[in-house]
C-alpha cells in the first residue's frame, strides 16, 4: 500500500492542483493578518489572530480548497483518460482509490498546517510578541483540517457520478456558502460542511450556552460526521471495484 501511496503522490508532483490549493490556502493568513493589521483602536493578540484565521480557514477557504482537491483527484483521471493506466496495472482497484483518498487527506492536513504557519508569519509581521502554546494551536488546526477532509469521499462520489470537475466544484461552492448561513442555525450540528467550526467550538473554545442551544448532542454530531465520511467512502470503494470507469 505504501508503494501505491507513493505512486499517487508522484502523480500530484508539480500538478497545478498543488499550486492552486497552496496559494488559495495562504489567502487565509493574508486575510486574517490584513483584518487585524488595519483594525483601528484594537490591540490584537495571538489568540485573536489565530481564532480569526481558523474561522476563515474552516468556514470559507478550507471547504473551497477541499472541494478543489476532492474534485480534481478524480476528474483529472477522466480528463486525461489515465484511469486505464492505473486499472491495467498490477494494483487492486480499491488500493488505487484508497491511495487517492490518502494523499488527498494528507494534503488537506498539510494545507491546514501551512495556513497556521502562514498566520504565525502574519502575526510576527504585526509584532504580536512571542508565540505561545504552539502545540495547542497546531492540534486545533489539524483537527480543523481533518474536519474539512471528512468531506473528501463525498466530493469524490459526486465526481465519480458526474465525471465533471465543475459539477463537484459547484456543489462545493454552494455547500460552503450554505454552511456559512447554517452555522448560526440550531441545526448546524447536522450540516457536515459547517461541522468543523462547530467541533472546534465544542472541543476548544466551548461556549456552553451556544452549544446547548443547538439541536442534538456531541455524540450524535460525531456520529453524523463519521457517517458523512464513511458512507460515501463505502459507496466509492464498491463503485471503483464494480464500475466501468473507462
Amino acid at each position: 500500500m505504501g508503494n501505491v501511496l507513493q505512486i499517487e503522490a508522484l502523480k500530484w508532483r508539480r500538478s497545478p492542483l498543488v499550486w492552486v490549493t497552496l496559494a488559495s490556502t495562504l489567502a487565509t493568513p493574508l486575510l486574517a493578518t490584513l483584518l487585524f493589521g488595519f483594525a483601528e483602536g484594537r490591540e490584537p493578540t495571538w489568540h485573536d489572530l489565530l481564532n480569526q484565521a481558523l474561522l476563515i480557514h474552516t468556514m470559507m477557504i478550507g471547504p473551497l480548497v477541499t472541494t478543489l482537491i476532492g474534485a480534481s483527484a478524480i476528474s483529472t483521471e477522466y480528463q486525461f483518460d489515465t484511469w486505464k493506466l492505473s486499472l491495467t496495472a498490477p494494483i487492486k482497484r480499491w488500493q488505487v482509490y484508497t491511495a487517492k483518498l490518502g494523499v488527498s487527506l494528507i494534503w488537506c492536513l498539510a494545507l491546514s498546517v501551512a495556513a497556521l504557519l502562514g498566520t504565525m508569519v502574519g502575526g510576527s509581521l504585526l509584532h504580536l510578541g512571542p508565540f505561545e502554546r504552539f502545540w495547542y494551536w497546531a492540534y486545533q488546526w489539524l483537527i480543523g483540517g481533518a474536519g474539512l477532509a471528512i468531506m473528501l469521499p463525498f466530493y469524490h462520489l459526486v465526481t465519480f457520478v458526474s465525471r465533471s470537475f465543475f459539477v463537484t466544484s459547484g456543489a462545493g461552492i454552494v455547500g460552503t456558502f450554505t454552511g456559512i448561513l447554517m452555522v448560526s442555525s440550531k441545526w448546524a450540528g447536522y450540516y457536515p460542511i459547517a461541522s468543523v467550526p462547530l467541533l472546534l467550538a465544542i472541543w476548544f473554545n466551548s461556549r456552553p450556552g451556544e452549544v446547548q442551544s443547538l439541536v442534538g448532542t456531541q455524540p450524535v454530531w460525531l456520529l453524523c460526521l463519521a457517517a458523512t465520511f464513511l458512507l460515501p467512502l463505502l459507496i466509492n470503494l464498491v463503485f471503483v471495484k464494480r464500475a466501468d470507469l473507462t
Binding site: R13, R14, D81, T82, A89, P90
Partner: peptide
C-alpha cells in the same frame, strides 16, 4: 503491456516521470 484507445499521460510530468509512475505500478 497495453495501449488502449490512444495515448494517455499525466501531462504536467515529463516522459521519464510518466514512465517512472508506470514502472513503479509494475513493481
Amino acid at each position: 503491456g497495453s495501449l488502449i484507445e490512444g495515448p494517455a499521460f499525466w501531462p504536467h510530468l515529463s516522459a521519464t516521470e510518466n514512465m517512472g509512475i508506470i514502472q513503479r505500478m509494475k513493481g
